[in-house]
């Protein structure tokens, strides 16, 4: 779970041993690559791509290392443990603003843009007086991480619906614990992503906002990134393999559902029902800028940021 205080110490040691990170590869066969990826629905493409051999085609011997969250993958990349990693847009913007040397190489996952059919939603109990996003004003809403993409996009949903987001009390709860908290009335509403959206709905919860769809059109929720230490040729090849994986995943939903059972613990009957996200090969730069602007307005970022520094 949260090794947050141990991490700085570990990082201190790891940073001390950081060095040039291009793994030895010229002419000796495939490059060994370690990718830090959260084991969630969003990252199905990289798992599917590996299974289908797209990375082998690019002479990349890919190891996927599960991480707990965006902060862990960013620190892992910066310290040299991962050559490539997966993190959400807000985490990347925040890290970039603090001066960390990261660059996006490929899209990660995008919202479907369709309210009612997205992989992220804000839900309430069946008898709740909250009917739509604007009713969330002044209520207690759980997100998996404060000052991150969840609360930013929820505020956008509320504003879009004509409500005032300033009085919302956001509380931090990991996704798996959120449905139980809603059941026990610890919070008024929860924000979760699949498979917890379908899980909550099957327990009777009612979605009142589809925050990723509301915040921007075709929102780029997360991306794959690297540091400037990585060998440019390797980066090009990884990007190519990633794009192929994304396109394949976007067009083969059944195979996506199959690969989910290999790296997540979601029950098979749930896998059948969840809403899958979209996986366009291109990053939607306008949506990233939107998130940056929203984050600045919410105080998550403390200055304007040039998105092109992050997304070349």
């Amino acid at each position: 779970m949260r090794l947050a205080l141990a991490v700085p110490l570990v990082l201190l040691l790891a940073a001390a041993c950081g060095g040039p990170q291009a793994p030895p590869g010229e002419g000796t066969g495939k490059d060994k690559v370690n990718a830090g990826v959260i084991a969630i629905v969003d990252t199905a493409p990289i798992h599917l791509g590996k299974a289908k051999g797209f990375f082998d085609e690019q002479d990349i011997d890919l190891t996927i290392t599960p991480v707990q969250g965006g902060a862990a993958s960013i620190t892992g990349a910066v310290s040299g443990q991962f050559q490539f990693a997966f993190a959400n847009t807000t985490s990347l913007l925040t890290a970039k603003q603090q001066g960390l040397d990261i660059r996006v190489v490929a899209n990660g996952v995008s919202s479907t843009g369709e309210p009612g059919k997205d992989f992220s939603a804000v839900l309430v109990k069946p008898g709740s007086p909250i009917r739509s996003a604007k009713d969330l004003a002044g209520k207690k809403v759980s997100v998996n991480q404060l000052k991150n993409i969840g609360d930013t996009t929820i505020r956008a949903s509320v504003r879009k619906d004509g409500g005032d987001p300033d009085g919302i009390e956001f509380v931090e709860l990991p996704f798996p614990d959120a449905p139980a908290a809603l059941e026990n009335d610890r919070v008024d509403a929860i924000w979760v992503v699949e498979p917890f959206v379908s899980q909550a709905i099957s327990q009777g919860a009612r979605p009142v906002a589809w925050n990723f769809a509301d915040a921007a059109d075709a929102l780029t929720v997360a991306m794959y990134f690297t540091t400037s230490r990585t060998d440019p040729d390797l980066t090009k090849r990884f990007t190519a393999a990633m794009r192929k994986s994304l396109e394949y995943a976007d067009t083969h939903p059944d195979e996506v559902r199959q690969v989910l059972s290999t790296y997540t613990k979601i029950a098979p009957e749930v896998i059948e029902k969840i809403y899958l996200p979209k996986w366009p090969a291109e990053v939607n730069r306008a949506s990233v800028q939107t998130i940056a602007d929203l984050a600045l307005a919410d105080g998550v970022l403390n200055a304007e940021i040039d998105v092109s520094e992050l997304v070349p």
Binding site: R2, A4, L5, P8, A71, S91, A95, Q98, L146, K147
Partner: peptide
Amino acid sequence: IVLFQRQFQIAEMW
């Protein structure tokens, strides 16, 4: 402190 760590605000974290 944990929030600072996650936001990479390292000086504040320390």
